[in-house]
Amino acid sequence: MRLIRINLQYFAADEKTEKATPKKRDDTRKKGQVAKSQDVNTGFLLLLVFGGLFLLGDYMKNTMTGMYEQTFQEYMNWELTIDTAATVFREITVEMAKVIAPIMGIAILAGITSNLIQVGILFTAEPLKFDLKKVDPIKGAKRIFSARALVELVKSLLKISLIGVITFMIIWLNKDQMMLMSQKSVEDALLFFGEITIIMGLASGLALLLLSILDYTYQRYDHEKNIRMSKKDVKDEHKNIEGDPLIKSKIKEKQRQMSAARMMSEVPEADVIITNPTHYAIAIKYDEEMSDAPIVVAKGVDFVAQKIKEIAKAHDVVMVENRPLARAMYQEAEIDQPIDEQFFKAVAEILAYVYRLEKKV
């Protein structure tokens, strides 16, 4: 029973039930794993491109007809040489660029805008890296028959059906006029069919954009599901960020040891040791070049205090007993820092006593 309970606890801890932490979200974003619907891109592209065709249709028609007129009225009369062929090619290329460039610019703008709306600014090369897992046939088969693949299939069928219905309805509503185009001029026929095409494109783009709202909602849900974390993952991440408590405690212990060793090395240079006498020891040094006030170079209680006094005794550093001062300075004073103003008078008297004792004054 105990073994079963342990296994159940293990599986519960490994189950991905927790929402992704900010760090997890940031890491997955850097890898290019974001919630994104391709239908948003397609819908924006169709709307803006066909909108551009609607606005720029006359300009494009005039440019194209002007190019044809110049070709048959002027270029046809030129003598065929390398120079004239190069001139014709260059001028036709420029005219074609005038027609294509605005639509290409609109398409690029649509792609950039749709991606910015969904994922913001993101530059990463992670998706381009070669990964053997992507060509694993077993995992590939699992992806083909997964729930996500089924959703994509249903979505594709829905898009095809929706666009098919829209285009059929537009054609059906305009069938009578289409039949009459045989009696119209070529220019009128081209104008009519161009308008119908733009209407179908705009309607399809709008329908895809509306459908993309559902798709984007699903993509966000699926993305959130894929980046969920187990309780163990959250704990491990917290440890990585904050540091393993055991390692941190060892580092702190090592830092304390290094600090204590450095502190003890300063005791022989002290001018006086103020003691409790048994529990506290404060080592004071006064150097006018270093500071205007005396500096605490070492302090300790109990074992450390005894060690300070042993080193002081071995190096003939004067020890002065002052219980209230030793206790107060241990609580208030910081190592390698000047003493507080409240201790100036008491410490000055002790230093004066030490200097007299050593015949320094």
Results as ranks from 00 to 15, higher is better:
residue 1 M to G: 13
residue 111 G to I: 03
residue 20 A to N: 09
residue 23 K to W: 08
residue 188 D to Y: 11
residue 320 V to F: 12
residue 166 I to K: 14
residue 312 A to T: 08
residue 168 F to H: 08
residue 86 A to D: 12
residue 139 K to C: 00
residue 89 F to R: 02
residue 248 K to C: 07
residue 3 L to P: 01
residue 255 Q to H: 10
residue 323 R to K: 15
residue 338 P to Q: 03
residue 288 E to L: 05
residue 149 A to D: 10
residue 272 V to Q: 06
residue 155 K to A: 08
residue 194 G to P: 02
residue 4 I to A: 15
residue 284 I to D: 11
residue 277 P to T: 00
residue 21 T to N: 08
residue 178 M to P: 07
residue 120 G to K: 01
residue 247 I to Q: 10
residue 135 V to G: 03
residue 76 M to S: 15
residue 13 A to K: 15
residue 240 N to A: 14
residue 131 D to Y: 02
residue 261 A to Y: 02
residue 49 V to Y: 06
residue 313 K to C: 00
residue 70 Q to R: 15
residue 163 I to A: 14
residue 343 F to W: 01
residue 289 E to K: 15
residue 359 K to M: 07
residue 209 L to M: 15
residue 100 I to Q: 09
residue 225 K to P: 00
residue 297 V to Q: 05
residue 71 T to N: 13
residue 179 M to I: 08
residue 38 Q to D: 14
residue 173 L to A: 15
residue 134 K to L: 04
residue 313 K to M: 01
residue 330 Y to P: 06
residue 103 I to K: 04
residue 354 V to C: 03
residue 44 F to T: 01
residue 206 L to R: 00
residue 260 A to D: 12
residue 103 I to G: 04
residue 224 E to S: 12
residue 43 G to R: 02
residue 341 E to F: 11
residue 258 M to G: 05
residue 81 T to H: 08
